[in-house]
Amino acid sequence: MVVRVLNPGLSTTVQDLGRPGYFHLGIPIGGAMDRLALRAANLIVGNDEGAAGLEAVFVGPQLEFTRDALIAVTGADMPIKLDGEEKPSWTALKVRAGQVLSFGFLQTGARIYIAIAGGIDVPLALGSRSTYPIGALGGFKGRAIAKDDELPVGNAAGGREGRSIPEALRRRPGMPAELRVLPGLYWHRVTEETHRNFFDDQWKVAPEADRMGYRFRGGRPLQFVERDQPFGAGSDPSNIVDSCYPYGSIQVPGGTEPIILHRDAVSGGGYFMVGTVVSADMDLIGQLQPNTPTRFVKVDMDGALKARADRAALLDRIRSVFA
């Protein structure tokens, strides 16, 4: 069976849980920006958690189903319509052959995840079906879906209509969004005043935010500790001798606008990093719209590991709904 794309939305890509293991070669992990939402959508329709679904940012696609199917939409709040009739989110929905799935205006959040029982059955590329558009790798022909594409869907395994995930288990960013940050190796490069300001200030998401990185503005510029720039580093105080960039690392070119590297990150470069967003909060970033007020919250390693354990416990509770 195939799903026909009547309208792709703004940028809708096939994503699974990504392709770990190639970042040292410059190929990022990719995959769903909000992995918990994709896992949840898959569980609802009876798929493996890591099956490929569709990630649509800000604008939902319009899709025609050529056969009966079971689907679920999770993530951002965006009215879901089947042949124009509104349907619940985070719930297994029966779609009949010929029906059209469409969406209203985005309300809160940034990205929806559409899981179809059987999963999107595009070929594996380096072990994943995720689309890395800049590298023309994976997904549907290495790119975002386009009008008239026919997306192949695998054989469904036994999901049931009407199953859903309770409201309390749907994780969303708060307002303002709070992202926990572990200060990093270059923390000594900025002044004590900046150590305080960075966490005291309210930032907001800049319109440049995308799958590679989320940019923020609105906080006070960072002040650097004076030094003679070492051999190999650029002349700006925010430059370092080239280094690896972790996922979630926060670089601040010129000391003005922090950029959090996300799933489609570049793997290294010459900007200092103030710290790293804890892995447990990376999903939340994927649900931030432009202009969302955001605070960075300082944690130590124990705090980061606690956040990771809490998120794992939440996932276990979601799994237990379908056990």
Partner: peptide, 9 residues
Amino acid sequence: IKSPLPGMF
């Protein structure tokens, strides 16, 4: 006339 997207107008 509504904005289809969030961003800067």
